[in-house]
Nucleic acid binder design. Structure first.
Lengths: 371, 371
DNA sequence: TTGAAAGCGCTACCAG
DNA sequence: CTGGTAGCGCTTTCAA
């Protein structure tokens, strides 16, 4: 008997005090069906009966078993979120709002955090097994195969903060091209002539679009060249390293646009360490507008991602309550961001033309910093 | 017919292509039980049969329905996390590690984020309905009533980063008293004589313990007085405001211990704004050691919470695989943190006695900062 | 409005 | 090792 290892396992099957609808029925001399109906809003049952049932249920500590219910109804009231980058402060904010929104539509959140090496695709079958009502995937794409699998299962999926140009998979993202353009406008208005762009993950649409919008708008405005610097990922360290490389060039840029705020934070530190003052010697712009971007120590000018709208749109696209117009459900929805000007950018040249030329409104500059 | 509003609902019952074990059985001329066994690791089934089943399953796109399985086995392989403070960077880190650990033990994560006003207690019944295998509650306490309810359901619960002194509910936390003491030691070793303590939420055990450890150790070391300043919550803004109040006192403190890193960041900015240099004029210490504490712009000396150990211990206390010694499972487990010295603290007085007296090893001081 | 009965898709037990 | 047979606790027709 010592040989059996899984001895305690059967013990784990909670053998205990859970009351079923049957128990309530017995106590009340009703049928089990009636108990069920009492807990179904749309069921036809007399008010008094329902009240009696509810009363008895409370007394007995009865709660419908959602698992059993799901087996019948074929939906779990659970929405799955796939989110990899929990360490970047941008994502917890998205997650927070997503969970709140999901709760608002009466669902629960199943969170899946892929391991570093793990492909998002691999986890979908598992999620599908859980019969989730919908899946929100952040910052990852989807192959046409998986799209088909989800479709077959009738499980709606939506991509958040990324999209797949070719595929018809629903996606919501900030309008990164427009964002890049807005930043180009801002920098050119501030008379910068040697801007640099620091990318994150090289292949992400997010990145590419920001860059495209930024560079093309720069061209349109007559700024021919833009220094392109690879970040590698979206981390503080990557931003730090990229900024240092930029600062050590023979011809330094007079402005840097980092594709994420956290990278910009790293950049800020690196630039100061290299003896450059921000914004006097160089302007710095980020992307996302995480809360800390507004802290005085950063004062980062950045493009605010419209997270509330994005989250709202994403959940809406899941169409969990079946009341969507269906016809005009665009495959991918881009939402405009908003430039937030702070103290990390100021105009070049000696003819002050904008209100950002010097630190104003008591908001001090970051220049003294010598890190 | 226009009167019926829930017309489309039945339509949502995915009427589609999901293959069941029965389908696979039919195709293979086997019994449905055998299909089930093929997917049960511990079941007795021949290797060849299992292989055939797996092959056919793949071909048909069959995956066991975990809902149906859960109905039988009475567990869902889901661990619920209740986490309110997603915006404080400390919690995403905890969440990240929790999910990884939960995945490592073969479970999924159901995330519940209570709304601002919502009581944690209120959500437990819902979680219980979902038949989760266990519940991890971060930064919130539990009433004895709920503890009893969970116990009745045989659903293990563990508190993370908080504990209930009276109750016998399993809890894991950083040893905050010891943490407070370590910081007192550090500050006194650096010859500070007018330390201040800035609290977060006034009633949290976390807080109280830090404070207790800090103040009593200070006393032991001969520092009689410690300025106590209320933060109110754990935010940057709260830290900022508290630090400003402290800086505007007639007799300023020569060191401030903020009960969270984010508060300390706010404090750093406030102090600089008030014209104080850190660490030359005043030392600043935080608590948590979030990643950004190590960034040059903060260089925050702080007490590192042993998150990996805490997470590991918490999940272990859930005892999800039933192989715990059971006898020596302490109701509450405190894990020692570790002081991380950076550039926000330095010794007072003119007799350099410790290596922190002046900025060393090329790590520059933060003094130049004038925010 | 209510009760009886038939499953949802699976696991678990019992024979063989 | 495999096939039959009971359910898990609920929702949902179908009659009454």
């Amino acid at each position: 008997m010592a040989g059996r290892t899984d001895r305690r396992k059967p013990d784990r099957r909670k053998p205990s005090a859970h009351v079923t609808a049957e128990d309530v029925a017995r106590k009340l001399g009703l049928s089990q069906s009636t108990i069920s109906r009492a807990f179904t809003a749309s069921a036809s049952i007399s008010g008094t009966t329902r009240a009696r049932v509810m009363e008895a249920a409370r007394a007995l500590g009865y709660r419908p078993n959602v698992i059993a219910r799901s087996l019948m109804t074929r939906h779990t009231n659970i929405v799955a979120i796939v989110m990899a980058n929990l360490v970047d402060p941008f994502y917890p904010i998205v997650l927070d709002q997503l969970t709140q929104r999901i709760k608002a539509i009466g669902r629960q959140t199943l969170l899946f955090v892929p391991s570093p090496g793990q492909d998002v695709e691999d986890v979908l079958p598992m999620l599908l097994q859980y019969q989730v009502d919908g899946i929100v995937i952040t910052s990852a794409t989807l192959s046409s195969t998986m799209v088909r699998v989800c479709a077959a299962q009738r499980t709606p999926v939506v991509l958040l903060n990324r999209y797949v140009p070719g595929l018809k998979v629903p996606a919501v993202s900030c309008d990164n091209i427009a964002g890049g353009r807005q930043i180009a406008d801002h920098l050119v208005a501030l008379r910068h002539v040697r801007p640099a762009f620091v990318s994150g993950q090289p292949d992400a649409t997010t990145n590419l679009d920001c860059q495209r919008g930024f560079v093309t708008r720069l061209h349109e405005l007559g700024v021919a060249s833009c220094i392109q610097e690879q970040g590698g990922d979206y981390s503080y360290e990557a931003g730090f390293a990229a900024a240092r490389r930029l600062a050590r060039r023979k011809r330094r840029p007079d402005a840097i646009f980092f594709v994420s705020d956290v990278m910009a934070f790293g950049g800020l530190d690196a630039l100061r360490q290299e003896g450059m003052r921000v914004p006097e010697d160089i302007s710095v712009v980020g992307f996302d507008d995480v809360p800390s971007a507004g802290w005085p120590c950063f004062g980062l000018t950045t493009l605010r991602q419209p997270v509330p709208a994005m989250v709202h749109a994403a959940i809406a696209m899941l169409d969990l309550d079946g009341d969507a117009p269906a016809r005009r459900r665009p495959a991918t929805r881009l939402i405009m961001g908003e430039l937030v000007e702070r103290t990390s950018t100021m105009a070049r040249g000696r003819h002050p033309r904008t209100r950002r030329d010097q630190p104003v409104d008591g908001r001090p500059s970051l220049s003294g910093i010598r890190i």
